[in-house]
Amino acid sequence: MSDHARFEKLVMPHLGAAYNLARWLARDGHDAEDIVQDACIRALKYVDSLNRSEARAWFLTIVRHAFYDWCERNRPADIAHDDGSALEAAVDHNAIDPEQAVLRRAESKAIADAVAELPLAFREVLILREMEDLSYKEIARIADIPIGTVMSRLARARALLQGSPRLRAIGERTSGGER
């Protein structure tokens, strides 16, 4: 099979996962597309070394690398000191019924915004775990960190979300302050 055929067969099915990861890392749709395109060029170059069973994690590893390279070129401050301070709202919402969906949407937006505001190191681990359902071992490979670090970052990410003022504000409004 040619590299182009391998690419179509092994990499293209994971384009959606690649875009979602890039989108959550870069927090911008257009930047995410650039990152994915860059990742695809890299993936094509090395696709002959790829086994089918690991295609998604392998490709996501490349996407992550492409993101960090992109960051170095375009937003060095993001890597240098990502303190999780708020950036521009990262989430678009398409409510079906505006009137009924207002509160629901406010809640959804709250948690999505809280995820978007997580520091990069925590955000990437959380996205890989919760949205891609990858195992600790796979995440460790992709992020190039020990499994222990995956666990501690995941724990930190979750603690930050649970303690996020955004979520707490919503919780108080919907349940009268009770937990």
Binding site: S2, L15, Y19, N20, A32, E33, C40, K45
Partner: peptide
């Protein structure tokens, strides 16, 4: 909450087309 409320961003169909165009324009291995 994360699984139901945090959006999984879908790639635009045009992205897949662009990627295929890029692949087609890249020389074979």
């Amino acid at each position: 909450r994360i699984r139901t409320e945090v959006p999984y961003f879908a790639a635009a169909p045009a992205l897949a087309e662009r990627v295929r165009a890029i692949v087609a324009a890249t020389p074979p291995a």
